[in-house]
Design a protein around this nucleic acid. Structure first.
Lengths: 235, 235
DNA sequence: ATAATAATGGAACGTTGTTCCATTATGGCC
DNA sequence: GGCCATAATGGAACAACGTTCCATTATTAT
């Protein structure tokens, strides 16, 4: 979606006809981030796309960190509200958590930059949205109140961990000029050439690495934690 | 540990007497990162500490990403080799994994920047070290070979997730001029003022947040996953 | 109409990672 | 012991970035 901006000519200097807005800035930022990765969003490229100067943007936004957090929050808000629609009425809390987690995975896969954007806003809006949605299911599951935070943060840390690694892989591959398959191939061959004395396990893992399915493995991890939550333990 | 560097005067231009080395550069980088956070390491501050120019550093190091990865690897190498000493002979794989995880937590707590440094080197040396140590215990645990990667990556993602969030909290607090307690206090009061209709769970969590113990909660998450690994499941 | 404020956009600043290059030490070879 | 290719140094310079500043223009209230 490319912006079309009317421009008014007044005494030699150009000025946009429609005024800027915070939402417009955020939406354009998302387009840039999706299109060119984390490095694709600068105040220059952004102001160029918006047919304005860098200074004008600062009227609507505090700084770049604020901008990234806002862009991230927009995605998370959509993500955490969307899956409500596809819910079957009698779904178990576990099933809903799986759904929420998968929605997060897909969002982080489509917008790899949110993985590192979440790193800029601890305890803020984007995080709260996720905690809330997951937490409500934790409560329904009957987890004792004292363990609410531990349980939610275990799931959250796992999800954000995967997101961070996804972002890292994408970023790394982009700078090397590889796509996902080439990247995995490279890591796999590197691991297969490790010293068998020092790294027997990692070496043996190379084959599995080459053909694994990120999404499936992610879900398997969620299931592992959910199973842990359901198992008895000493308090 | 402050470096003392002898300088030789030759025909008007200064030159260091002892030559630079990659290890020396990395060790000084670690000091800077530990002392002043992620933003504390620049090629200017680094070259100043080493009593040289930015250009000289590039003879020993490819770029900043390389430098960060190397610094991170140095810490991880020490961390993954150290706990071997304190092992009781009959320790279960679970106990060893807990020990390894705790060692990682403490390392990431002491050097918060490695959380984000790990984000720059997917599939590379630092990651391989962790995978190997954990993986060996996974094998001993008797996890079927097909599930090796899923299991290790679940633990790894959780650990790195916590590390990433730790780094984020530290970084965020530093820019706001707060220490850890003030930061938690701020988040907690912010959460307690959330809309009760929209965020009932997060709101109720505020109190728990204020008084929680990061290290304990981290370990609880590890136990959750370990319990999940031990529980029967459909393949 | 006039004053006050909101909003714009481009120039400019300081800092960053990185490159370039003139210069200097070092180690092998005749 | 002098010579030379190469290793290594260090400072200047570059491009790009986030951010600030300010002269200017639209918009609103009085």
């Amino acid at each position: 979606m490319v912006q079309k901006v009317r421009i008014k000519r007044t005494s030699g200097s150009l000025r946009r006809e429609e005024s800027l807005s915070r939402e417009q800035i955020i939406e354009t930022s998302i387009e840039l981030l999706d299109g060119s990765g984390e490095g694709g969003l600068t105040f220059r490229t952004l102001s160029e796309r918006l047919a304005t100067g860098p200074g004008a943007i600062y009227w609507h936004i505090a700084n770049k960190s604020d901008l990234l957090t806002a862009a991230c929050d927009a995605i998370i808000a959509r993500t955490m509200n969307a899956p409500l629609a596809s819910l079957t009425p009698g779904a178990t809390p576990q099933a809903i958590i799986r759904l929420l987690a998968l929605a997060m995975f897909d969002a982080m896969d489509e917008h790899p930059w949110i993985g590192s954007a979440l790193t800029r806003a601890p305890g803020q809006s984007p995080m709260v949205r996720i905690v809330e949605r997951i937490g409500q299911q934790i409560r329904i599951l009957g987890v004792p109140k004292k363990e609410h935070w531990v349980t939610v943060s275990a799931l959250l840390n796992y999800i954000l961990g995967v997101g961070g690694r996804n972002a890292a892989n994408g970023q790394f591959a982009r700078t090397q000029g590889l796509d996902r398959t080439d990247f995995l191939e490279a890591v796999s061959t590197a691991w297969s050439q490790l010293d068998p004395e020092e790294y027997p396990f990692a070496r043996g893992l190379a084959a599995q690495l080459r053909s694994h399915d990120d999404r499936k493995d992610f879900l398997a991890g969620i299931d592992l934690i959910l199973r842990g939550i359901g198992s008895p333990h000493r308090t």
